[in-house]
Design a protein around this nucleic acid. Structure first.
Lengths: 339, 339
DNA sequence: ACGCCTTATGTTATCGATAACATCATCTGT
DNA sequence: ACAGATGATGTTATCGATAACATAAGGCGT
């Protein structure tokens, strides 16, 4: 069947099946009152005409877009990918689709994107992180749909939160290092202007050192997020050059930790004997590398599942939209061979 | 401003700004005839009312969804992420957004997804791979919008193609191995039922061996795609157990190659001295690992850029929809230390 | 036999923006 | 002075499905 300049509509199907357009509409839904004979006749007519349901028109008249919008900083980040997969699983039987946008770790881009996504009338909107431009914050507050902030634990949530404290995560690793007997500690990553969550991890790490009267100056803030393996490697070189007696280094992500580790392997620096390395995010990479990398797990996939649960509860009226729901996830250290 | 049960519409804005709804519509567009004074008054009224443009209604009346739909097998795959990033860049100034769907390397899921995406009336649709269920193929053929198949080079394209021959890629690596003097060669991955492109790479590899009268039986088809690092590691163990004299192994992806490499490192098997390893896909991981992994580059990012270019040319009438355009990408071997 | 309930189907205005056409005022050229 | 062109704005039917309400037929209980 060749595409025609005018696509068949339900009116065409109705005409061919000798029913009303409303009956055709019912035939394309579940749980509607249509006799089996009528339904069969309608679906056959639709098939013959090459009819494709038009969800744009459906969305307009029902005032439901069928979308949940979600922003993540990067498409190629194992953590965010896991979270999106969790959301997808959680939403699978709901009929809702995820409309994804990528902010590139840029709050201005996030603002533009949120504006654009809101025009699609999502039934809920999920944003990564708890810091936004004032205008973005206002748009979200006025969206009139559930808003969920993830991967952070903002002190003034816009709507709901499924996340964890990045500062706590950094502090946790610092405590692990100290517990291991290390005292000359470094941090790699956490660009001050864009990766706000990485910066929080750094802050937590630094605060824990300061609380103990330890040197908190060994920080390499390398490059624009997300820090690559290569940048992690370069930062490790700089860390060791500037402070050769460094005993342990936390990297802002498993990606950068892997890069740092590989640089040590290249240079014959033994890990953890000569320097311990840790990351964040519990990527497969951290588990599979030789030696396996100590990391922090926040339950990336679980975050997605919980976000989807929350959104469905809010949309189905099982929870009141006016509630301020905070689902806290607990960062845990996965101790491996690099520390 | 509190969300109200009824969202303000252009009619409300028109009333407040004392103009027609059509003038309001013009004020929200570029390149329309609206005086500066009128435009300012309208935008001010919209801001005061908290008006959000409704793209659902716009899409219906203009018969343009503003979407380009794209399916990729997995969200967390560096190659597909690069391709999507290329598409995003290429489409950035066009006003078109990408509506992504994930097929999970499953042609039945692809069929369901394509059906769902087509209901959103995308202005073009991009699918990964050249093999589809018959029903999926028919839906695409009848979609009435540009269809582009990527990451493959099908012999009977549905519409257009931006891709490469996976078989050629496999063959290329086999030739590289032989050129290096290896003759006892193995292949890891390429599940026969789901990863059709991986299977093609395996077929090309095997065919090259058979052409040379070499043993082509050393194949480990491990697990459901995408093959993880862990599965690559396990497959390497099996490869070496079954054929201890294997000299070189191609893995279906850099992910599995990395897993295989790490397993060798764990076991003290020297790469490439004891066994050479190669992958596919030119992930950062392959470059950064120690030793860096020989791989095949197909230009994942460039594929995305070219797809976007093609789609825009087709939508803007610079190319005729009836043309069958095939943009071939050339796989190249990046020779690194693992071979 | 009758009334009520349930199931199946139909009718109609609407969702909110826009394409296509119409109208009016102003400016420019003859 | 007049005619034609241009810019700014308005009018109206429409895009294609659906919510809300309406209608009719059949079955069941009294």
């Amino acid at each position: 069947m060749q595409p025609s300049p005018k696509r068949p509509t339900m009116a065409d199907v109705a005409h061919r099946a000798n029913v009303s357009t409303m009956t055709v509409s019912r035939a394309f839904k579940r749980d509607t009152s249509v006799s089996a004979d009528t339904r069969d006749r309608i679906l056959k007519a639709a098939e013959e005409l090459g009819y494709v349901f038009d969800s744009i028109a459906a969305n307009l008249s029902s005032r439901r877009s069928g979308f949940v919008a979600a922003t993540i900083p990067s498409i190629n980040n194992a953590n965010f990918a896991d979270t999106v997969r969790g959301m997808t699983e959680g939403l699978r039987d709901s009929g809702l689709e995820i409309l994804l946008g990528f902010t590139d770790y840029n709050v201005e881009e996030e603002e533009r994107l949120v504006g654009q996504l809101l025009q699609r009338r999502p039934e809920a909107i999920i944003v990564t992180g708890g810091r936004h431009t004032p205008r973005c914050r206002k748009m979200l507050a006025n969206a009139g749909v559930p808003v969920v902030e993830t991967w952070d634990l903002p002190s003034e949530p816009i709507g709901h939160v499924v996340g964890f404290s990045n500062a706590d995560a950094g502090r946790l690793m610092a405590e692990h290092f100290v517990g291991r007997g290390y005292s000359r500690l470094g941090f790699i990553g956490g660009d001050t202007s864009r990766d706000t969550r990485g910066l929080d991890r750094r802050r937590g790490f630094i605060a824990a050192l300061q609380d103990r009267g330890l040197d908190a100056s060994r920080v390499i803030a390398s490059g624009v997020p997300p820090i690559s393996m290569r940048e992690g490697a370069a930062a490790m070189v700089e860390m060791i050059s500037r402070w050769p007696d460094t005993q342990a280094v936390m990297c802002v992500s498993d990606l950068s930790a892997f890069g740092a580790l590989m640089e040590c392997v290249r240079r014959g620096i033994r890990v953890p004997e000569d320097v311990a390395i840790a990351g964040f995010g519990a990527y497969d990479l951290a588990e599979q590398s030789v030696p396996p990398i100590t990391t922090i797990d926040v339950g990336a996939h679980e975050i997605g599942i919980r976000v989807a649960e929350l959104v469905l509860d809010l949309l189905n009226g099982r929870r009141a939209a006016e509630e301020r729901i905070v689902v806290g996830m607990t960062p845990t250290v996965i101790v491996r061979q690099t520390t």
